[in-house]
Design a protein around this nucleic acid. Sequence first.
RNA 1: UCCCCUGUAGCUCAGCUGGUAGAGCGGGUGACUGUUAAUCACUAGGUCGGAGGUUCAAGUCCUUCCGGGGGAGCCA
Length: 461
Amino acid sequence: MQNRIVHLIDADPSETRINVEGWIRTKRDSKNFCFFEINDGSCLKNLQVILDKSTSELSEVITHISTGASVTFTGILVESPGKNQKVELQAEDVILHGEAPADTYPLQKKRHSLEFLREIAHLRPRTNTISAVARVRNSLSFAIHSYFQEKEFIYVHTPIVSASDAEGAGEMFQVTTLPLDDIPKDNGVVDYSKDFFGKPANLTVSGQLEAEIYAMALKNVYTFGPTFRAENSNTARHLAEFWMIEPEMAFCTLEGDMAVAEEFLKYIFNYVLNHCEADMAFFNKWVQKGVADGLKEVVDKPFIHLPYTDAIKELTSTKKEFEFPVSWGADLQSEHEKFLTEEVFKAPVIVTDYPKEIKAFYMKLNDDEKTVRAMDVLVPRLGEIIGGSEREYRYDVLTRRLDELGLDPKDYWWYLDLRKYGSVPHAGFGLGFDRVVQYVTGMQNIRDVIPFPRTVHNAEF
RNA sequence: UCCCCUGUAGCUCAGCUGGUAGAGCGGGUGACUGUUAAUCACUAGGUCGGAGGUUCAAGUCCUUCCGGGGGAGCCA
């Protein structure tokens, strides 16, 4: 655990003999000296190791050390005469744990395309970009827990397998133990009484409804876990398996919801800017120019609040031509969201009070009977990063809404019970964690910010 | 799922209006003065995504299937 390279590169020279473990990134060999760059994933930088071949008996073993090999060097940290590093390890001994034959090892010193790296997802964390993503992803996870824990939210584990057929947030993966080549049927209808749970079950598409249950007892809760959508969407922003964060707050209206969403985003962005400086500088320079600078701006500026109706006015009063027509009642398209965040306000925008027809049944109906207390946080570059709402907490209005939408109240019995017993205004939001990582790092494709992307026709590794 | 682009050496790509393939990097071998995308010399790698078709002749044109990318829809 000691001697991680992130600390060694800034350490002072010392007479103490130390061990350094890691993987070889490059080797520069000449007659008398051999230089290695060794990386252990603790940071982007490598530690330079120098080996004096004239005084060492290691000439044989170092011919087997090539890019990708795993080694432990023993030596002394000395001041480096070279200009690119403060210190370097003067090696006295080396253990070669595992060779990486250069004629077949796929990773080279040069840059690889992210598409190629995706095909070797078992080796790609050994690259600068993917390891930096892993560290930022880790820090963001920590920051998320840290924010909610500081605010005394309770972390709730909502189920992965859900037999509730009420969520309706997207296409679901069915979970079954029925034999697919011989499904038991009763008059042509699948006999789910023979299935594991005795009824149809799916992988969860959202933990929100279950989170509401716990909010109705613990006041402020959040979920942070995997979510699944079986949608045939093939874009740089969609995964079939992704991680979602869903806070839910009792005694809270949309105003409180928006305030938390803004504070939360700023907190986690700020955390990463402060704790992953080197990685963020890397993204800022090589992955997407100015991504870290843009993040700083988001942290400093107040978010714009804009009712849907005003957003429509904004979009219809511009001379800009849109591919999709703008009209009250239609959902905002990607191009509209981009226009608002990137051209009109140049800042994150929270659009509120959408028409009820384009939002979910559980959102609180406004007095106009036309709009609901929904909010979407839109950010430049990415579009919607957060979707949330104040929930409909009035029993009679909720049952009326279910009725209007042709939904069966029996399927929502426990959800309705929450409105029957001790109901209270409450609100929450959801955000896709992987999209946050994407936004923060500036990575173009969501498949490169999750270690093992699951997408249509792709579940390798 | 729809629209557009694309698939040539291990990687990144070039290959004009059809005449059976090239570069850089990487690999191997050797040289080398503390190198840092090291350098220099030599060298080996490809039935041009698969299957059909047009043609005297196909990497190049056509059909189709399969990958990959961009955009859209769905959404987080």
